[in-house]
């Protein structure tokens, strides 16, 4: 799937829905911020999850981030390849870097997620905030 076809959370998960099954991963931006990903802890197949529950962790060398479920439903598949080869997330977050597939229990929940364009704007706002601070710094320097 391409980034444009996905929906997103504020916590930087992407979600791609086809036939009531959601494939879930983390955005390229999130993978870049975390750096070298070294370990993934994902929910077990068959477990039930609720929207925005922490369902796993993503570990880099010196940071760790929680993984939140963008939707409610049942986990029907876990990407074992990515668990044994977590560095692939950084290289290819959208194709081979997917984490789990969830069978949706409430498709209505998708409404609260960002579209690609909305997510892009959201990232833009966050970056702008940072730059604003940096600019202030520049002035202080002089």
């Amino acid at each position: 799937m391409s980034p444009e076809e996905c929906l997103y959370t504020k916590e930087h998960e992407w979600i791609y829905v086809e036939n009531n099954v959601a494939t879930i991963g983390i955005s390229e931006y999130a993978a870049g911020e975390l750096g070298d990903i070294v370990y993934l802890e994902l929910p077990e197949a068959d477990s039930s999850v609720s929207q925005m529950d922490p369902i796993g962790t993503i570990e880099a060398v010196k940071t760790v981030a929680d993984l939140y479920s963008p939707v409610s439903g049942q986990v029907i598949e876990v990407n074992e390849d990515i668990v044994s080869n977590p560095e692939a997330v950084s290289k290819d977050p959208y194709e081979n870097g997917w984490f789990i597939k969830i069978k949706l229990s409430d498709p209505g929940e998708l409404d609260v997620l960002f579209s690609y364009e909305e997510y892009r704007d959201y990232l833009g706002e966050q970056e702008a905030e940072k730059h604003e601070e940096d600019d202030m710094m520049e002035e202080e320097d002089e």
């Binding site: 370990y39 570990e59 880099a60 060398v61 010196k62 940071t63 760790v64």
Partner: peptide
């Protein structure tokens, strides 16, 4: 495996 430890987690 420092992510187990207090200074990170």
């Amino acid at each position: 495996l420092q992510t187990r430890e207090q200074h990170i987690r």
